[in-house]
Amino acid sequence: MEIFWFGVLAALLLGYFALEGFDIGLGILLPVLGRSQDARDRLVGAMAPFVLAGEVWLVAVAGVLFGAFPSLEGEVLSGLYPLVVTLLLSWIVRDAGLWFRRRADGAIWRRVWDAAVCLGSTGLALTWGVILVALANGLSAPPLAGVAAGIVVALAFCLHGWTFAAWRLPGDPAVRGARRSGRALLLSACAAAAPAALALAAVGSGVVGYAAPPETLTTLGAIVLPCAPILIGAQIWVWRTFRRGALPTFF
């Protein structure tokens, strides 16, 4: 039972890196790939329908941590205090950029929130790098290794984001006319998830010892497991609906 819930935790974290990594990467690259407001709108329009379904994987990571590994949750989050605060602030700033950028007109308004998307995404990627090093290293990150990991995660996310854009907007000037297949997107998703996989491998069996008692885990399983097909089905529905065709304009 403990091992099962560790598997769920790992799957959700890897899923977050694979499914949210391209949104964060595109956010970092927004000023580079989107030189004009029109190009930025197209890039955001391409990723917009996937953001809500992608970021929620991290919400679920925190939920599983609290439900199945409660004492670990307190130890990890408070042990990484400034990093978690930075991560949350970056996340909120990125999301605010996406939700607000089209809610009013005016060049300055649009620029401010596009900058928020880029700033927040960059903050997310760099903070994740440091957090992963800290997780693998007993909750403390040597500054140099942390910065290096932050850059690695940011680069992996950028690669994933660029591949996503070339897959969703094949031949678009924003990606210099490149086209990428679904298989390439799958590979870049693996690259985005690789840093998290390494950290999980380093932590590994240590997590299992923090699991809640069997009574709690069984109750959780009895309620969550029957819903799993719906969770997965809804995610597949999102991808099937928005992988091709015109670009939504709400974000």
Partner: peptide
């Protein structure tokens, strides 16, 4: 306390 919160987020 964690169980209902986990179910809330996950489901």
């Amino acid at each position: 306390f964690g169980a209902p919160l986990a179910i809330e987020t996950l489901v």
